[in-house]
């Protein structure tokens, strides 16, 4: 563990510094510096900074997804070429040709390794910083970055909902256990839900065909369990980081699935439907949705023959009528 700490020291320094900075800011804005709530907000602020810094990378990836739609016909041709061939050589050949195509067009459906690999050390550093706070307070470990000994003491003793920030499921009494258990369940739940949304709505039909789908489905159920079990070791501060981070992912995911879905996925079909209903053209490369002819024409013709104007229909019923046809 000590080896890890020294390896992660620069990152720990930055994490501690940002934490202390937020605390300063919040104190300046008038919040009580010793209260647990202030520290919770500081941790939330740290999370938002970390996730926010990754947003430009994310936006870039979304933009390249648009370009992906343009090369869909090439991709489909490629899949047809290798359809049914399951041996190692063919699989490698297909993937290589696919990747070369992506490279040629400068797009890719993959996000790239760096954002994820960057988040892991940050999470670890935060974990170590918050874990070490009690020891920093007593002077066992040298304070890191902006976390002076006084701040560490403050954070150590900060009480939120009657719980110290550094206590975890394992180290606390029944009240601590209850609160942390609820938090862990919420977090595992949001993780499961976000993953599931992605798998059911945002994966193209071609991606769903891949032979590792079974494995991915298993992971969908396994991951929350794994994190749930790990969660009992996390101090409350880390649980809060996790909660804010997962909420951010969930909101981000909902936004992306609604307005910028992956090409060929169910979410894209929903989007095309919504656009067609509003009269907007389909996005380039996506399948346009055929809209049924408007029922108003039929109503007026009926009205003319029966001598009665078409009866006004409630908006909901109108939608139902349209869908029925």
């Amino acid at each position: 563990m000590a080896f890890f700490d020294t390896l992660l020291y620069p990152l720990q320094w930055v994490v501690a510094w940002i934490l202390a900075l937020f605390h300063e800011l919040l104190t300046f804005l008038g919040l009580n510096p010793a209260s647990g709530f202030t520290w919770v907000l500081s941790i939330a602020g740290l999370t938002l900074v970390v996730r926010g810094a990754l947003v430009p990378l994310f936006v870039r990836q979304i933009k390249s997804q648009r370009k992906m739609q343009m090369i869909q016909p090439d991709l489909q041709r490629l899949q047809k070429k290798y359809k049914g061939k399951k041996d190692q050589f063919s699989r490698q050949a297909m993937v290589e040709e696919q990747q070369a195509l992506f490279k040629k067009h400068g797009t890719s459906p993959f996000a790239s390794c760096l954002p994820l690999l960057v988040q892991m050390p940050i999470f670890l550093s935060l974990f170590r910083v918050i874990n070490n706070v009690p020891q920093m307070a007593t002077g066992d470990i040298d304070p890191v970055g902006g976390m002076t000994v006084e701040l560490a003491e403050q954070m150590d003793q900060a009480i939120v909902l009657g719980i110290e920030l550094s206590s975890s499921f394992l180290t606390g009494d029944w009240w601590v256990k209850a609160v942390t258990a609820v938090l862990i369940v919420i977090m595992a739940g949001t993780q499961f839900w976000t993953q599931r949304q992605m798998m059911t709505k945002n994966m193209s039909d071609a991606a769903m065909d891949n032979p590792f789908m079974q494995q991915q489905k298993m992971m969908l159920y396994l991951m929350p369990v794994v994190f749930g079990i790990g969660g009992i070791y996390f101090p409350l501060g880390v649980l809060i980081y996790w909660l804010v981070s997962n909420t951010w992912t969930m909101v981000q995911q909902m936004f992306v699935i609604r307005s910028m879905p992956a090409p060929g996925s169910q979410a894209e079909r929903d989007l095309m439907e919504r656009r067609a209903r509003k009269g907007k053209p389909a996005l380039p490369g996506a399948e346009p949705i055929e809209m049924k002819p408007e029922p108003e024409a039929d109503d007026t013709s009926q009205g003319k023959t029966s001598g009665q104007r078409p009866q006004p229909v409630n908006a909901k019923r109108k939608k139902k009528k349209r869908k029925k046809r």
Partner: peptide, 13 residues
């Protein structure tokens, strides 16, 4: 390689 594998890279084989 990990540094090269970022959203601004073109990827490939």
């Amino acid at each position: 390689r990990v540094l090269r594998c970022n959203p601004f890279a073109r990827g490939g084989v």
